[in-house]
Simulated scan of single mutants.
Amino acid sequence: MKFQFNKNYLVLAHSLFLIELAIAFIIKTGFIRYTFGDYLVVILLYAIIRGCTNLNVRASSLVVLLIAYGIELLQLTPFLTYFNLQASFTAKLIFGSTFHLTDLFAYTLGILTVLAAETSILKLHNKQHTRLWKL
């Protein structure tokens, strides 16, 4: 893996980060806050990884899913207490504080959305490339 910047992914990451901030500070409860935010966060992490490295789509997706699942599984333990962060709003916002099976589904759906979007983009790119060769 090498560091390699991709402006398109970094713009996407920046946009998603702003949306996540809005969700975190404006919406206090409900589906958007708890489930849609988790769905978007894996897409955000994916965009950051693709925007800063040369990892391919599958490897990036797997890394993001492992990170998301790992953090969610950590919520089964009092890990914030181990680092004396149990009262930290920021730590709770970033890492969460309670395990929810629905979060794992939201992460999985987010990555499946990424894979579907990347596949569609690749097919579109290949069609355009083929048309250029026919001209």
Rank of each mutant, 00 (worst) to 15 (best):
123 K>N: 04
54 N>V: 10
14 H>P: 02
115 L>N: 01
108 T>M: 10
65 L>T: 10
108 T>I: 03
81 T>R: 15
127 K>L: 11
89 F>N: 11
67 I>D: 04
125 H>V: 14
81 T>L: 12
113 T>W: 09
129 H>F: 08
102 T>L: 12
5 F>P: 00
89 F>E: 05
115 L>P: 03
82 Y>I: 04
73 L>E: 01
6 N>M: 00
52 C>L: 14
22 A>K: 10
33 R>Y: 02
114 V>P: 01
95 F>K: 05
113 T>P: 10
118 E>K: 09
116 A>W: 02
64 V>D: 09
120 S>G: 15
109 L>D: 08
54 N>F: 11
32 I>A: 13
44 L>Q: 07
3 F>V: 06
61 S>L: 06
91 A>I: 06
34 Y>F: 07
40 L>H: 08
39 Y>N: 02
90 T>M: 07
123 K>H: 14
110 G>T: 03
28 K>H: 08
65 L>R: 03
42 V>S: 07
69 Y>T: 08
81 T>Y: 07
135 L>E: 05
72 E>S: 03
11 V>H: 01
21 L>M: 15
53 T>V: 06
95 F>S: 02
86 Q>E: 15
21 L>T: 04
45 L>W: 01
92 K>E: 11
100 H>G: 02
106 A>G: 08
96 G>Q: 01
97 S>F: 06
125 H>Q: 07
59 A>M: 12
92 K>I: 03
115 L>T: 05
97 S>G: 10
60 S>M: 01
82 Y>D: 07
14 H>Q: 08
26 I>P: 11
122 L>N: 14
32 I>P: 01
24 A>G: 13
82 Y>Q: 14
61 S>T: 06
94 I>T: 06
12 L>F: 00
68 A>Q: 02
18 L>T: 09
48 I>C: 08
114 V>M: 09
67 I>M: 04
50 R>F: 12
85 L>Y: 07
60 S>V: 01
6 N>D: 03
80 L>Y: 07
23 I>E: 09
94 I>C: 05
73 L>A: 07
82 Y>G: 13
121 I>F: 07
14 H>V: 13
44 L>Y: 12
28 K>E: 13
103 D>P: 06
119 T>D: 14
68 A>H: 09
31 F>W: 11
58 R>K: 12
79 F>S: 13
34 Y>K: 05
91 A>W: 13
58 R>M: 15
25 F>P: 04
5 F>K: 03
49 I>L: 13
30 G>D: 09
111 I>Y: 08
63 V>G: 02
113 T>G: 12
116 A>N: 09
126 N>F: 15
117 A>M: 14
119 T>E: 13
87 A>I: 12
94 I>V: 11
16 L>K: 05
114 V>N: 04
76 L>A: 04
102 T>H: 07
50 R>K: 12
